[in-house]
Write a protein that binds this DNA or RNA. Structure first.
Length: 367
DNA sequence: CACGCGTGGCA
DNA sequence: TTGCCAAGCGT
Protein backbone atom coordinates (compact mmCIF):
# COMPACT_ATOMS: atom_id res chain seq x y z
CA UNK A 1 0.00 0.00 0.00
CA UNK A 2 1.50 3.35 -1.06
CA UNK A 3 1.81 6.05 1.54
CA UNK A 4 -0.37 9.13 1.28
CA UNK A 5 0.97 11.91 -0.91
CA UNK A 6 2.40 14.83 1.00
CA UNK A 7 -0.33 17.19 -0.20
CA UNK A 8 -2.94 15.44 1.96
CA UNK A 9 -1.21 16.74 5.04
CA UNK A 10 -1.81 20.35 4.13
CA UNK A 11 -4.51 22.49 5.74
CA UNK A 12 -6.99 21.33 3.12
CA UNK A 13 -8.74 18.21 4.41
CA UNK A 14 -9.42 15.26 2.10
CA UNK A 15 -12.36 15.83 -0.23
CA UNK A 16 -14.37 12.98 1.25
CA UNK A 17 -14.09 14.45 4.73
CA UNK A 18 -15.15 17.88 3.57
CA UNK A 19 -18.24 16.41 1.93
CA UNK A 20 -19.19 14.52 5.07
CA UNK A 21 -18.88 17.70 7.10
CA UNK A 22 -21.03 19.57 4.59
CA UNK A 23 -23.73 16.89 4.76
CA UNK A 24 -23.79 17.05 8.54
CA UNK A 25 -24.13 20.80 8.30
CA UNK A 26 -27.01 20.44 5.83
CA UNK A 27 -28.84 17.96 8.04
CA UNK A 28 -28.39 20.09 11.15
CA UNK A 29 -29.68 23.21 9.41
CA UNK A 30 -32.67 21.34 8.01
CA UNK A 31 -33.60 19.78 11.35
CA UNK A 32 -33.31 23.14 13.12
CA UNK A 33 -35.67 24.59 10.51
CA UNK A 34 -38.02 21.62 10.94
CA UNK A 35 -38.13 22.02 14.70
CA UNK A 36 -39.45 25.54 14.20
CA UNK A 37 -41.66 25.13 11.12
CA UNK A 38 -42.89 21.55 10.98
CA UNK A 39 -46.48 21.14 9.87
CA UNK A 40 -48.96 19.79 12.43
CA UNK A 41 -50.70 16.98 10.61
CA UNK A 42 -53.26 14.56 12.03
CA UNK A 43 -51.11 11.51 11.29
CA UNK A 44 -47.99 12.91 12.91
CA UNK A 45 -47.21 12.19 16.53
CA UNK A 46 -46.48 15.20 18.70
CA UNK A 47 -42.76 15.69 19.44
CA UNK A 48 -41.71 13.03 21.93
CA UNK A 49 -44.95 11.06 21.64
CA UNK A 50 -45.09 7.46 20.44
CA UNK A 51 -45.62 6.90 16.71
CA UNK A 52 -48.39 4.55 15.55
CA UNK A 53 -47.15 2.60 12.50
CA UNK A 54 -50.74 1.94 11.43
CA UNK A 55 -51.47 5.66 11.15
CA UNK A 56 -48.17 6.29 9.39
CA UNK A 57 -48.89 3.55 6.86
CA UNK A 58 -52.49 4.65 6.29
CA UNK A 59 -51.47 8.26 5.75
CA UNK A 60 -48.64 7.33 3.39
CA UNK A 61 -50.95 5.28 1.19
CA UNK A 62 -53.53 8.05 1.09
CA UNK A 63 -50.90 10.70 0.34
CA UNK A 64 -49.62 8.92 -2.77
CA UNK A 65 -50.16 11.48 -5.55
CA UNK A 66 -52.77 13.15 -3.36
CA UNK A 67 -52.77 16.49 -1.56
CA UNK A 68 -52.69 16.86 2.22
CA UNK A 69 -55.94 18.81 2.03
CA UNK A 70 -57.78 16.02 0.18
CA UNK A 71 -56.49 13.34 2.55
CA UNK A 72 -57.54 15.08 5.78
CA UNK A 73 -61.23 14.07 6.02
CA UNK A 74 -60.56 10.57 4.65
CA UNK A 75 -57.86 9.93 7.23
CA UNK A 76 -60.24 11.06 9.98
CA UNK A 77 -63.02 8.79 8.74
CA UNK A 78 -60.77 5.74 8.35
CA UNK A 79 -59.13 6.02 11.75
CA UNK A 80 -62.43 6.60 13.49
CA UNK A 81 -64.03 3.60 11.84
CA UNK A 82 -60.95 1.37 11.90
CA UNK A 83 -58.62 2.34 14.77
CA UNK A 84 -56.22 -0.55 14.17
CA UNK A 85 -54.88 -2.52 11.23
CA UNK A 86 -56.64 -5.61 12.54
CA UNK A 87 -59.99 -3.83 12.60
CA UNK A 88 -59.41 -2.80 9.01
CA UNK A 89 -58.45 -6.36 8.07
CA UNK A 90 -61.68 -7.74 9.56
CA UNK A 91 -63.82 -5.39 7.47
CA UNK A 92 -65.12 -6.50 4.04
CA UNK A 93 -63.14 -4.95 1.20
CA UNK A 94 -66.39 -3.50 -0.19
CA UNK A 95 -66.73 -1.30 2.90
CA UNK A 96 -63.17 -0.06 2.38
CA UNK A 97 -63.93 0.79 -1.26
CA UNK A 98 -67.04 2.73 -0.23
CA UNK A 99 -65.14 4.73 2.37
CA UNK A 100 -62.35 5.43 -0.12
CA UNK A 101 -64.78 6.58 -2.84
CA UNK A 102 -63.87 10.04 -4.13
CA UNK A 103 -60.19 9.91 -3.19
CA UNK A 104 -59.06 8.39 -6.50
CA UNK A 105 -56.54 5.73 -7.56
CA UNK A 106 -58.79 2.96 -6.32
CA UNK A 107 -56.26 0.16 -6.55
CA UNK A 108 -54.82 1.79 -3.44
CA UNK A 109 -57.98 0.91 -1.50
CA UNK A 110 -57.92 -2.70 -2.67
CA UNK A 111 -54.22 -3.00 -1.83
CA UNK A 112 -54.79 -1.26 1.49
CA UNK A 113 -57.16 -4.00 2.56
CA UNK A 114 -54.91 -6.74 1.18
CA UNK A 115 -51.99 -5.24 3.11
CA UNK A 116 -54.04 -5.07 6.31
CA UNK A 117 -54.90 -8.76 5.92
CA UNK A 118 -51.25 -9.66 5.36
CA UNK A 119 -50.10 -7.70 8.41
CA UNK A 120 -52.87 -9.14 10.59
CA UNK A 121 -52.46 -12.74 9.48
CA UNK A 122 -48.79 -13.10 8.59
CA UNK A 123 -47.19 -10.59 10.94
CA UNK A 124 -49.40 -10.85 14.03
CA UNK A 125 -50.85 -7.38 13.54
CA UNK A 126 -47.43 -5.67 13.62
CA UNK A 127 -45.94 -3.92 10.62
CA UNK A 128 -42.44 -5.05 9.65
CA UNK A 129 -39.95 -2.46 10.88
CA UNK A 130 -37.43 -2.53 8.05
CA UNK A 131 -37.53 -1.57 4.38
CA UNK A 132 -37.12 -5.13 3.13
CA UNK A 133 -40.00 -6.45 5.19
CA UNK A 134 -42.31 -3.61 4.21
CA UNK A 135 -41.37 -3.55 0.54
CA UNK A 136 -43.20 -6.71 -0.47
CA UNK A 137 -46.56 -5.81 1.07
CA UNK A 138 -49.42 -4.88 -1.28
CA UNK A 139 -49.40 -1.21 -2.24
CA UNK A 140 -45.99 -0.56 -0.62
CA UNK A 141 -43.27 0.36 -3.10
CA UNK A 142 -39.82 1.89 -2.69
CA UNK A 143 -40.99 5.25 -1.43
CA UNK A 144 -43.62 4.02 1.02
CA UNK A 145 -41.40 1.28 2.47
CA UNK A 146 -38.65 3.80 3.15
CA UNK A 147 -41.07 6.37 4.56
CA UNK A 148 -42.66 3.93 7.02
CA UNK A 149 -39.29 2.53 8.08
CA UNK A 150 -37.97 6.04 8.74
CA UNK A 151 -41.05 7.73 10.22
CA UNK A 152 -42.60 4.86 12.20
CA UNK A 153 -39.43 2.97 13.18
CA UNK A 154 -36.68 5.59 12.96
CA UNK A 155 -34.64 3.54 10.48
CA UNK A 156 -32.05 5.52 8.49
CA UNK A 157 -33.78 4.99 5.14
CA UNK A 158 -33.34 7.33 2.18
CA UNK A 159 -36.87 8.58 1.54
CA UNK A 160 -37.38 9.97 -1.96
CA UNK A 161 -40.75 11.30 -3.07
CA UNK A 162 -41.66 14.07 -5.49
CA UNK A 163 -40.80 16.74 -2.92
CA UNK A 164 -37.38 15.30 -2.24
CA UNK A 165 -36.67 14.94 -5.95
CA UNK A 166 -37.36 18.63 -6.38
CA UNK A 167 -35.28 19.70 -3.38
CA UNK A 168 -32.26 17.59 -4.31
CA UNK A 169 -32.24 18.31 -8.04
CA UNK A 170 -32.25 22.02 -7.19
CA UNK A 171 -29.64 21.71 -4.46
CA UNK A 172 -27.19 20.06 -6.86
CA UNK A 173 -28.60 21.45 -10.15
CA UNK A 174 -28.99 17.92 -11.46
CA UNK A 175 -29.49 18.05 -15.24
CA UNK A 176 -30.49 14.43 -15.73
CA UNK A 177 -34.21 14.04 -16.42
CA UNK A 178 -36.55 12.08 -14.19
CA UNK A 179 -36.96 9.18 -13.73
CA UNK A 180 -33.38 8.47 -14.88
CA UNK A 181 -32.03 10.72 -12.12
CA UNK A 182 -33.73 8.71 -9.37
CA UNK A 183 -30.73 6.55 -8.33
CA UNK A 184 -28.45 9.59 -8.09
CA UNK A 185 -31.05 11.43 -6.01
CA UNK A 186 -31.45 8.48 -3.66
CA UNK A 187 -27.70 8.22 -3.22
CA UNK A 188 -27.46 11.92 -2.45
CA UNK A 189 -30.22 11.65 0.16
CA UNK A 190 -28.44 8.70 1.78
CA UNK A 191 -25.38 10.94 1.99
CA UNK A 192 -27.30 13.87 3.51
CA UNK A 193 -29.30 11.73 5.92
CA UNK A 194 -29.02 12.37 9.62
CA UNK A 195 -28.82 8.99 11.30
CA UNK A 196 -29.66 10.39 14.72
CA UNK A 197 -33.15 11.53 13.66
CA UNK A 198 -34.06 9.61 10.49
CA UNK A 199 -37.81 10.04 10.84
CA UNK A 200 -37.61 13.77 11.39
CA UNK A 201 -35.11 14.13 8.58
CA UNK A 202 -37.44 12.39 6.12
CA UNK A 203 -40.41 14.51 7.14
CA UNK A 204 -38.28 17.65 7.14
CA UNK A 205 -37.24 17.03 3.54
CA UNK A 206 -40.86 16.62 2.50
CA UNK A 207 -42.02 19.65 4.48
CA UNK A 208 -39.26 21.71 2.88
CA UNK A 209 -40.42 20.64 -0.57
CA UNK A 210 -44.08 21.21 0.24
CA UNK A 211 -43.79 24.64 1.88
CA UNK A 212 -40.52 26.30 0.75
CA UNK A 213 -39.03 24.49 -2.23
CA UNK A 214 -42.34 24.49 -4.11
CA UNK A 215 -42.72 23.73 -7.82
CA UNK A 216 -43.56 27.34 -8.65
CA UNK A 217 -42.19 30.48 -7.00
CA UNK A 218 -40.15 28.72 -4.29
CA UNK A 219 -39.52 30.81 -1.18
CA UNK A 220 -35.74 30.55 -1.41
CA UNK A 221 -35.12 33.41 1.02
CA UNK A 222 -36.67 31.28 3.78
CA UNK A 223 -34.78 28.10 2.92
CA UNK A 224 -32.23 26.68 5.36
CA UNK A 225 -30.14 25.56 2.37
CA UNK A 226 -30.26 28.77 0.36
CA UNK A 227 -26.54 29.47 0.67
CA UNK A 228 -25.49 26.14 -0.84
CA UNK A 229 -28.23 25.63 -3.43
CA UNK A 230 -26.69 25.39 -6.90
CA UNK A 231 -29.94 26.19 -8.72
CA UNK A 232 -30.54 29.28 -6.62
CA UNK A 233 -27.02 30.51 -7.32
CA UNK A 234 -27.80 30.25 -11.03
CA UNK A 235 -31.32 31.66 -10.62
CA UNK A 236 -32.75 28.58 -12.34
CA UNK A 237 -34.56 26.93 -9.40
CA UNK A 238 -37.93 26.80 -11.12
CA UNK A 239 -36.53 24.74 -13.99
CA UNK A 240 -35.83 21.71 -11.78
CA UNK A 241 -36.42 18.84 -11.74
CA UNK A 242 -35.85 18.23 -15.43
CA UNK A 243 -38.48 15.93 -16.92
CA UNK A 244 -39.94 15.08 -20.30
CA UNK A 245 -43.27 16.79 -21.02
CA UNK A 246 -46.39 14.71 -20.61
CA UNK A 247 -48.94 14.14 -23.33
CA UNK A 248 -52.66 14.40 -22.68
CA UNK A 249 -54.88 11.70 -24.10
CA UNK A 250 -57.51 12.08 -26.79
CA UNK A 251 -61.09 12.84 -25.86
CA UNK A 252 -63.25 9.74 -25.40
CA UNK A 253 -67.02 9.70 -25.54
CA UNK A 254 -69.67 7.32 -24.25
CA UNK A 255 -73.18 7.03 -22.87
CA UNK A 256 -74.56 6.35 -19.39
CA UNK A 257 -78.02 4.92 -18.74
CA UNK A 258 -79.73 6.03 -15.55
CA UNK A 259 -82.62 3.67 -14.82
CA UNK A 260 -84.87 4.52 -11.88
CA UNK A 261 -87.47 1.99 -10.78
CA UNK A 262 -90.91 3.19 -9.64
CA UNK A 263 -90.14 1.97 -6.12
CA UNK A 264 -87.16 4.35 -5.85
CA UNK A 265 -84.32 2.07 -6.86
CA UNK A 266 -81.36 2.83 -9.15
CA UNK A 267 -79.76 0.32 -11.53
CA UNK A 268 -76.00 -0.11 -10.97
CA UNK A 269 -73.19 -2.58 -11.52
CA UNK A 270 -69.68 -3.17 -10.17
CA UNK A 271 -66.70 -2.61 -12.45
CA UNK A 272 -64.10 -5.38 -12.87
CA UNK A 273 -61.58 -5.45 -9.99
CA UNK A 274 -58.62 -4.25 -12.07
CA UNK A 275 -58.14 -1.37 -14.46
CA UNK A 276 -59.85 1.99 -14.62
CA UNK A 277 -62.06 2.59 -11.55
CA UNK A 278 -61.49 -1.07 -10.65
CA UNK A 279 -63.97 -2.50 -8.16
CA UNK A 280 -66.03 0.68 -8.02
CA UNK A 281 -69.76 1.00 -8.60
CA UNK A 282 -71.00 2.54 -11.85
CA UNK A 283 -74.10 3.49 -13.77
CA UNK A 284 -74.50 1.03 -16.68
CA UNK A 285 -73.08 2.52 -19.85
CA UNK A 286 -71.49 2.05 -23.24
CA UNK A 287 -67.82 1.56 -23.96
CA UNK A 288 -65.81 4.80 -23.91
CA UNK A 289 -63.94 5.47 -27.13
CA UNK A 290 -62.62 8.28 -29.30
CA UNK A 291 -64.93 7.38 -32.18
CA UNK A 292 -68.08 6.74 -30.13
CA UNK A 293 -71.23 7.99 -31.90
CA UNK A 294 -73.98 9.16 -29.56
CA UNK A 295 -76.54 8.47 -32.30
CA UNK A 296 -75.87 4.75 -31.95
CA UNK A 297 -75.85 4.77 -28.15
CA UNK A 298 -79.32 3.35 -27.56
CA UNK A 299 -78.17 0.00 -28.91
CA UNK A 300 -76.07 -0.43 -25.76
CA UNK A 301 -78.88 0.26 -23.27
CA UNK A 302 -78.98 -2.24 -20.39
CA UNK A 303 -82.78 -2.79 -20.52
CA UNK A 304 -85.43 -2.49 -23.26
CA UNK A 305 -86.97 0.73 -21.97
CA UNK A 306 -87.95 4.10 -23.46
CA UNK A 307 -84.78 6.10 -22.80
CA UNK A 308 -84.75 9.88 -23.00
CA UNK A 309 -81.55 11.66 -23.93
CA UNK A 310 -81.02 14.37 -21.31
CA UNK A 311 -79.84 17.79 -22.51
CA UNK A 312 -76.15 18.53 -22.12
CA UNK A 313 -73.54 15.99 -21.07
CA UNK A 314 -71.16 15.08 -18.29
CA UNK A 315 -67.48 15.95 -18.66
CA UNK A 316 -64.68 14.50 -16.61
CA UNK A 317 -60.90 14.43 -16.88
CA UNK A 318 -58.87 11.35 -15.95
CA UNK A 319 -55.10 11.33 -15.72
CA UNK A 320 -54.68 10.17 -19.28
CA UNK A 321 -57.81 11.23 -21.12
CA UNK A 322 -60.81 13.53 -20.97
CA UNK A 323 -64.27 11.94 -21.07
CA UNK A 324 -67.64 13.20 -22.26
CA UNK A 325 -70.72 11.17 -21.42
CA UNK A 326 -74.20 11.49 -22.92
CA UNK A 327 -76.77 10.71 -20.24
CA UNK A 328 -79.94 8.74 -20.93
CA UNK A 329 -82.79 8.28 -18.49
CA UNK A 330 -85.66 5.77 -18.26
CA UNK A 331 -88.20 4.57 -15.70
CA UNK A 332 -88.74 0.90 -14.90
CA UNK A 333 -91.74 -0.74 -13.21
CA UNK A 334 -91.56 -1.48 -9.49
CA UNK A 335 -90.02 -4.84 -8.74
CA UNK A 336 -88.49 -5.30 -12.21
CA UNK A 337 -85.54 -7.72 -12.02
CA UNK A 338 -82.04 -6.46 -12.70
CA UNK A 339 -80.29 -7.69 -15.85
CA UNK A 340 -77.45 -10.18 -15.42
CA UNK A 341 -74.45 -8.68 -13.64
CA UNK A 342 -76.39 -5.67 -12.39
CA UNK A 343 -78.30 -4.83 -9.22
CA UNK A 344 -80.68 -2.28 -7.76
CA UNK A 345 -79.81 0.04 -4.89
CA UNK A 346 -82.26 2.36 -3.15
CA UNK A 347 -81.91 6.07 -3.78
CA UNK A 348 -80.98 6.47 -0.12
CA UNK A 349 -78.03 4.15 -0.62
CA UNK A 350 -76.43 6.35 -3.29
CA UNK A 351 -74.50 8.47 -0.79
CA UNK A 352 -72.78 5.47 0.82
CA UNK A 353 -72.17 3.56 -2.41
CA UNK A 354 -68.67 3.22 -3.93
CA UNK A 355 -69.29 5.66 -6.77
CA UNK A 356 -66.25 7.40 -8.25
CA UNK A 357 -66.64 11.11 -8.88
CA UNK A 358 -67.47 10.76 -12.56
CA UNK A 359 -70.47 8.58 -11.65
CA UNK A 360 -71.68 11.04 -9.04
CA UNK A 361 -71.62 13.65 -11.79
CA UNK A 362 -73.79 11.39 -13.97
CA UNK A 363 -76.28 10.85 -11.14
CA UNK A 364 -76.39 14.56 -10.34
CA UNK A 365 -77.01 15.29 -14.00
CA UNK A 366 -79.95 12.90 -14.17
CA UNK A 367 -81.65 13.23 -10.77
C1' DC B 1 -38.91 1.87 -18.77
C1' DA B 2 -43.37 3.46 -20.13
C1' DC B 3 -47.76 3.44 -19.28
C1' DG B 4 -52.33 3.15 -16.81
C1' DC B 5 -54.38 4.76 -12.89
C1' DG B 6 -58.49 9.91 -10.04
C1' DT B 7 -59.34 13.95 -8.18
C1' DG B 8 -59.57 18.80 -6.95
C1' DG B 9 -56.94 23.02 -6.69
C1' DC B 10 -54.29 26.40 -8.70
C1' DA B 11 -52.44 30.20 -11.87
C1' DT C 1 -59.79 28.27 -19.80
C1' DT C 2 -56.40 24.88 -20.03
C1' DG C 3 -52.57 22.74 -18.29
C1' DC C 4 -50.04 21.14 -14.47
C1' DC C 5 -49.81 19.15 -10.71
C1' DA C 6 -49.73 16.25 -5.22
C1' DA C 7 -46.06 12.23 0.05
C1' DG C 8 -46.34 6.41 -6.26
C1' DC C 9 -47.55 1.63 -7.37
C1' DG C 10 -48.11 -2.34 -10.43
C1' DT C 11 -47.25 -4.38 -14.66
Amino acid sequence: MASRPVTSTTLTRPKQRREADASRHHAAALLAWYDRHRRRLAWRALPGAAVDPYRVWLSEIMLQQTTVKAVGPYFARFTERWPTVEALARSPVEEVMKTWAGLGYYSRARNLHACALAVAERHGGRFPSDVEGLRGLPGIGDYTASAIAAIAFDRPAAVVDGNVERVVTRLDAIETELPAAKPAIKARVAELLDSTRPGDFAQAMMDLGATICTPKRPACSLCPWQASCAARKAGTQETYPRKAPKTTGRLRRGAAFVVVRADRHLLVRTRPPKGLLGGMTEIPGSVWSADFAVAAARAEAPMPLAFTRLPGSVSHVFTHFPLELAVFHASAPAGAPAPAGMRWITLDEIAGEAFPTVMRKVIAHAL
